[in-house]
Amino acid sequence: MEILGQDRREGLGRKAESRAVLVTMIVASFILLLSSLYSAEASVFRKARESVIDAAEPVLSLIAGPIAYIQGVVGEVSDYFNVLEQNKALRAENAELRQWMEEALALRKTLAQYEALKAFHAPPGARPINASVIGDSNDAFTHAMLVNAGAPDGVMRGQAVIDDKGLVGRIVETGRAASRILLLTDAQSRVPVFIEDANVEGILVGRTNARPSISFTLSAGPANFQKGQRVLTSGAGGVVPRGIPVGEIVEERDGEAVVDLYADYARARLVRIIDHKFPTVEPIEAAPAEPTDRRQDGAAVLPSSVASLPALPPAPAPAPAEGAEDEPAQPEPSAVDEGD
């Protein structure tokens, strides 16, 4: 008993107390980890994250100036040493680009003719928002960047971000002065893509290493793709616009296509956020006076096929369209009401 008492006296000492605080803190951080895991989208966490990146923005921008200057000087010195090689490479690239330019000019003319036709509906234009990279996550398992554009500039969650070569990632958080981009290499990143010549769609999944891979759905069957084929965004899901270059297939691994990204994360200093409005189908108000128009109008049938898209406003259920097909002459107003 005496020994126990001595231990107890020691146990009330300062050291044991700080040890107890330490253990409590460890438990607290694991509880926080679990709770942030199961409610990562909770508004409290989101608000907190957004205010922290806003608060960090001035600090990061402040130190960005001198460091960019030093890096510029170092870069210029190293450029000086391999100026001959660079010149040679640039000349070759210039010759190739001239050929491409000729082809592009010819294509532009053809395209203008097509656009002049009445049947053509141009896709809605995208407004780019330019931003410079002020932060990297520099974390082995979290791949993200911070840019100095926020909600007042028109940045919204889900928007695609590109550099001069291809897709960089998507916006996941927007503060007032800064936003966070989730890079394609992050383990949480999922972007719908398609392989250009193979005509297969899949999801580009981040693997925390430099090369993400495309995973194919089981129902799609065996995917036939080849090394060197281009990967572009597919626009499925209605978040990232279709046709943004992502990368090239380098190999197959475990039934997945490993992609070498076009975007250069080590060099990306200026990026472009694409404010792209998807053509959405307006929910058609029930118009009892002329319900037959709904059946004839192609747009009325569309919502049923895209009803699963998350971004869309509640679309009319397919019920009224089917009902209208069954009885084209006498559509019942009640069926229309059910649809809404």
Partner: peptide
């Protein structure tokens, strides 16, 4: 003190965009 370590870790989680509580746990352990 442990509270400072917790604060440092939390700041890192917020800035890196990873799950909250990860770096505090790593540093405190």
């Amino acid at each position: 003190p442990a509270a400072s370590v917790f604060l440092i870790g939390l700041a890192q989680d917020f800035l890196s965009g990873g799950p909250l509580g990860l770096w505090p746990a790593v540093y405190l352990v």
